[in-house]
């Protein structure tokens, strides 16, 4: 990282949150370094947003501790945590123009008007919102709203930036650019960032480390490449795209459609090889995606040429792409599919 991190390390120890009788987070522990970008990844309902909101102080934990820069903030009100959030809905104030919105945090800190105006101008430039200071949220595009929400959070120079799926309401094309902007911005500011998302690609591109959450527990923590290459369990593998699941010995092998291979006659491969037949083959843009039946199971594999249905093929999975898990893999999905099979 080129700049000295100005952010604050964040510590979470044994954090538990319950909504009524529903336990949403089970003793989650996590240490985030100063200036680190961490993505909380998981499907909806996994507790990632709850974790973020308890860091912000919007949700009261039933147990555990949250520290920022060594300071215990577990019981602090939201305004005394030094963590600024970008909301999924942006939560822009409909009655306040862009300049007032971005300057709000500075006004409540008692800055004088000239200083606020200067800082607001700086933020407008940084976020490419020049000339829009007098607009109301209703007069902005989705991308502009997202940048205003970002500006409001960044204007107060927070120690920790909390991002709650800030790109989920943007067009796919806009999103691509915003990702890189966000990463550049975070690195140049040296700020600690926690980013909630259900989009694995977004998490991969943005984060130094990814935390995969499963039903209120941390399933795996690690740098994107490590998670990609060595998912700790079937749940993580499935979430990171290794959606194919074939029985192998006492367990299963999981792999990504783009990493499986249909072998030429006589070709050998270091890794598991299955005998199967082509059930279906469809063009998927630049490649063909074949559905291959192996006994009772089916797997999707990308192939360069079209394969005729009912052709017998050998499906190989290179050793480094084959993720092996025991039959009792702690994934609900696998339990369900076994239950169906039985």
């Amino acid at each position: 990282m080129e700049t000295q991190p100005r952010g604050t390390p964040l510590g979470i120890q044994g954090l538990a949150v319950a909504y009524g009788r529903t336990q949403v987070l089970h003793e989650v522990s996590l240490a985030v370094g100063a200036g680190e970008f961490v993505a909380l990844l998981g499907p909806s309902g996994c507790g990632k947003t709850t974790l973020l909101r308890s860091i912000a102080g919007f949700v009261a934990p039933s147990a555990g501790r949250i520290t920022a820069g060594g300071r215990d903030i577990t019981r602090e009100p939201p305004e005394r945590r030094g963590a600024a959030m970008v909301f999924q809905s942006y939560a822009l104030w409909p009655h306040m123009n862009v300049a007032k919105t971005i300057g709000y945090g500075l006004a409540v800190r008692g800055w004088d008007k000239a200083r606020i105006a200067a800082r607001v101008e700086e933020m407008l430039r940084l976020l490419r919102l020049e000339g829009l200071g007098q607009r109301l949220p209703a007069q902005l595009s989705g991308g502009q709203r997202q940048r205003v929400a970002m500006g409001r959070a960044l204007a107060v120079d927070p120690e920790i930036l909390l991002l709650d799926e800030p790109m989920s309401n943007l067009d796919a094309r806009v999103r691509e650019g915003v990702r890189h902007e966000l990463r550049t911005l975070q690195q140049s500011l040296g700020i600690t960032a926690i980013h909630v998302t259900h989009d694995r690609e977004e998490a991969m591109i943005l984060a130094d480390r990814i935390v995969v959450l499963e039903e209120g527990r941390i399933a795996q923590v690690g740098p994107p490449e490590e998670l990609w290459r060595r998912p700790a369990n079937a749940y993580v593998a499935d979430f990171l795209g290794a959606t194919n699941r074939l029985p192998l010995g006492d367990g299963v092998v999981m792999f990504r459609p783009e990493e499986g291979r249909v072998l030429a006659p006589g070709e050998t491969l270091d890794g598991p090889v299955f005998e199967g037949t082509v059930a279906f083959c469809a063009y998927a843009g630049g490649r063909w995606r074949a559905t291959i039946r192996v006994d009772e199971a089916e797997a999707l594999v990308d192939v360069p040429e079209r394969l005729e249905a009912e052709t017998a093929v050998r499906l190989g999975i290179p050793r480094e792409a084959a993720h092996l898990f025991g039959a009792t893999a702690p994934s609900r999905e696998s339990h369900e599919s076994y239950a169906e099979a039985g």
């Binding site: 912000a56 102080g57 939201p78 305004e79 939560a91 104030w93 409540v108």
Partner: peptide, 18 residues
């Protein structure tokens, strides 16, 4: 009024009353 609107203000330093 969406609760998040008030939380967004608290979040960047406003007291509950502000």
């Amino acid at each position: 009024i969406d609760d998040d609107l008030e939380l967004a203000a608290r979040n960047i330093g406003a007291s509950g009353f502000t």
